[in-house]
Simulated assay, not measured.
Amino acid sequence: MKQMSVENDSLVTEFIFMGLTDQPEFQLPLFFVFLLNYIVTVMGNLSLMILICLNSHLHTPMYFFLFNLSFVDFCYSLVCNPKMLMGFISEKSISYTGCMTQLFFFCFFGNSECYVLTAMAYDRYVAICKPLMYTILMSPKICSLLMLASYLMGFASAVAHTTCMIRLSFCDSNIINHYMCEIFPLLQLSCSSTYANELVSSLIACIVVIVSGLVILTSYASILLNIVRMSSATGWSKAMGTCGSHIVTVSLFYGSGLLTYVKPASTESVDQGKFFSVFYILVVPMLNPLIYSLRNKDVKLAARRTMMRSTNSVKR
């Protein structure tokens, strides 16, 4: 363990990941499993972003938000996956600076995704409950402001988490019980008071729950009431088709997040959280483009048109 002396305190200058498992026989199979996950995640989200950009009929608020969701998931995978993959086949260490950088972007994109999903829920609410006002309430300016606010909220939370983490001292162990630089595994290693970090984490969690959770629940409660009032089966089908993909995405993301973080703080809970986090950090970003592509006629049509244009250009 590399160390340096500052004010009579020995500060860790690098961390070592325990990873998902310390069993050598599982390292190579897990590497290929998560390499496939990484490739599908990157290609899926990148393809969806390209489709939205190239097809004018997808230049609507709904697909503007979907583009941003894919962008966040794409960046999320770049932050988390490469270092994890390296840990399966080579060095599991990361520098102190690299760890804080990874923590910052993990918090930034993770919190931004919460607010992007919130904006998408509001968009669905306006589309179903206030269709005559849709073009006004979801104008390009308002959509851009919603996304700007989402990224600013994510940036503010990332700055708060990282600033609080930097002020801590790490003196003894430098082994992180995780496959990446996550907040709570890092707090377990600190030899200074973590009260401020825990307070900031609780405050940010409360803000996310109050702002994001409340808006999403209120939006879908209003949508549900609106659907109940519909007399036609066509109205029901159209409403569920509009909201179905987003409901699945929100359920997967928030469900796995709650399993990871809402539990007593202990070594066992950190171990459990490490495995639950695989789902919302690695699996959900891979599934999102598939969920929206397989259940969406507009995306399928855009994919066919893009493939036909590409084929025709090659023939020429």
Rank of each mutant, 00 (worst) to 15 (best):
M1N: 10
M1T: 14
K2H: 06
Q3C: 10
L11C: 05
I16D: 09
E25T: 15
Q27D: 14
L28H: 08
P29Q: 04
L35S: 14
V42F: 10
M43Q: 04
N45F: 01
N45L: 01
M49N: 11
C53N: 13
H57D: 15
H57W: 12
T60R: 05
P61I: 03
N68Q: 12
F71G: 11
Y76V: 00
P82A: 03
P82D: 04
L85P: 00
M86S: 10
S90F: 12
E91V: 13
I94G: 03
G98S: 13
Q102L: 06
F105K: 05
E113K: 04
Y115W: 07
L117K: 01
L117V: 00
A119F: 09
M120T: 02
R124A: 14
Y134T: 03
T135S: 15
P140D: 12
S144W: 14
L146M: 14
M147H: 08
A149C: 07
G154S: 04
S157W: 11
A158K: 02
V159N: 09
V159M: 14
R167D: 07
L168C: 09
S169I: 01
F170L: 11
I175S: 11
I176Q: 10
N177K: 11
H178W: 04
E182K: 07
E182T: 08
L186M: 12
L187A: 05
L189F: 07
S192V: 08
T194P: 02
A196S: 14
V200P: 04
S201V: 01
S202G: 13
A205I: 00
A205L: 06
A205Y: 02
V209I: 14
V209K: 08
S212Y: 04
G213S: 11
S222D: 11
M230R: 09
M230W: 03
M230K: 07
S231T: 11
S232D: 09
A233C: 04
T234S: 13
T234W: 14
A239S: 15
I247F: 11
I247H: 05
V250L: 15
S251K: 05
L252H: 03
F253M: 06
Y254K: 07
S256T: 12
T267F: 12
D271K: 12
K274V: 12
L282D: 05
M286C: 14
P289M: 10
R305W: 02
M307Y: 08
M308P: 00
T311W: 07
T311D: 07
